[in-house]
Amino acid sequence: MSTVTIIAGATFREAVRSRAFLGLLGLFAAGTLASRIVGWVSSTDGNIVTTDLVLSLQSVVGVLVAVATGTALVQTEIQNKTLYTVLSRPVERWQFVVGKFLGLAAGLAAGQGAMLIIGLIYLWATGADVHRWLVLAGLMTTVEVLVMAAVSLCWTALTSPLLAAALGLATYALGHAVAGLPPLLHHLKGAQQVIAGSLASLVPNLGMFTYRNQAAYALPLPWDDLAIRLVYGALWIALLVGITISVIRRKQL
């Protein structure tokens, strides 16, 4: 077993046993139950509204877990000195960062999987239409959560955990804001358009992973479109983890 895998395994165990992780799963379960109330009072199809809410809740809770655990991943280790006993062994710093991220990613994916299963069982039990596009929406949400974990990891390498959490949430808001930017860019001209487009490309476009609303209406997602979105997410994760590694390699511990 490689060094990265060993670190990832321990990080996964540490992550899924953390109180924040278990607490937010509980919050998802409670929110899922409450979503039915919104469905009842909705003027449109109650089942569609409930489905949309359950999928959105999975995203919100997932992002909160990703930001909370991602920002604690490296900086807290430095502050608590827990990484001393790891980095004093034959472990390169890049192996440490990649192992930590993969472990956290596995934990987050397990959490997303658990939330998706709970959500689908609930929707089935309440008579909503359960189809494969809901699973695909869950997958896209998982990719969004992993990108947010990488964003948080990167911020925490650069600043304190608290500020990193705030910047992580700000990046989340900006990431969804840039999804609506292309139509607005047409109103700009020349340098303004180039500058606005360049600035927008500095944050991941999280709209690429938002397929929840279409999935609630069982609208299909073409496979080539899905592949582009997955590659886009993977590239952002690789870039952010790469930046984190270059910062941590220079860090005095």
């Binding site: 321990a10 165990r13 540490e14 046993r17 953390s18 608590n80 000195k81 827990t82 001393y84 006993t85 004093s88 062994r89 034959p90 472990v91």
Partner: peptide
């Protein structure tokens, strides 16, 4: 080289959940 090293840091902290 660190395979042959054992290290106890000052006031050590460890992961809580292992």
């Amino acid at each position: 080289l660190r395979t042959r090293l054992g290290f106890l840091p000052e006031q050590p902290y460890f992961y809580d959940n292992l």
